[in-house]
Write a protein that binds this DNA or RNA. Structure first.
Lengths: 121, 121
DNA sequence: ATGCAATACATTGATTTACAATATATTATA
DNA sequence: TATAATATATTGTAAATCAATGTATTGCAT
């Protein structure tokens, strides 16, 4: 239990949401996603990403099509389904609400007698 | 794999951070934390909270003291250690950076030829 | 006194999931 | 034909939340 663990927990929580967001903005294949996440300082490994994309595909939120590459094996390009777009809308709302709640919860308040929860011992 | 799972993942990610924040704002015992988290729409169960508090205590971020209750068994009131305060500062910074990154990542952009990553098939 | 309800701390077993390491396959090039 | 680069995919491990219980203390009604 160290602080880096807590930090990575925070990042984990938004992984799926961010990946859906990336795919919603345009057709991408896994390496595109890894790169875009890295730019946002939200690193994800391939061993995490592939099962996650498979889960999202099986859940009906994503589809893919094979695309030939000029320099290597063919790639799976992922796109959102209508169901995926709807789900993303819900998650966007959830994110906004949660971010607001966390910001409020972490607001630094002066610890006066009125708002403190000091125990009476 | 459904959308509620992804939503709860998002909430899980900030659990420890929020709990540290609550304790930093004043001495509390576990039921206070459950209540405050519920108000923020970030529900946590006792079976999750007790081990989590023990982890944070063993990591040196928290301390507690026993306080007699007027209506029931004694309570463990938790307070931050200096180390805990420092860790919270780091996590607050991490949260702010991550929230900014996620907001940027989920910004709705017009999908023009310039910023799209459309595959050439 | 005794039993019961409420409150509070705590543990156990199951499930999920991210990660590290590795495996499999394809393409281009030396 | 061997090697490097690229790409998809799986396996085993570890960590953490949750639901369900367990244990203990206090106050109150009978």
């Amino acid at each position: 239990m160290d602080i880096q663990n807590t930090q990575s927990q925070m990042r984990k929580g938004v992984l799926e949401f961010c990946i859906l967001s990336i795919i919603q903005q345009g057709e991408v294949y896994p390496s595109d996603i890894v790169e875009k996440m890295k730019l946002a300082n939200l690193h994800i490994l391939e061993g995490t990403l592939y099962p996650l994309l498979t889960r999202l595909k099986n859940a009906g939120l994503l589809n893919y099509r094979w695309v030939e590459s000029i320099s290597g094996p063919p790639r799976k390009y992922f796109v959102m389904t209508d169901e995926g777009k709807a789900a993303f809308g819900v998650l966007l709302q959830t994110w906004k609400e949660m971010a607001t709640a966390v910001d409020q919860l972490t607001e630094q308040k002066t610890n006066t007698a009125e708002n403190s929860n000091q125990a009476v011992s």
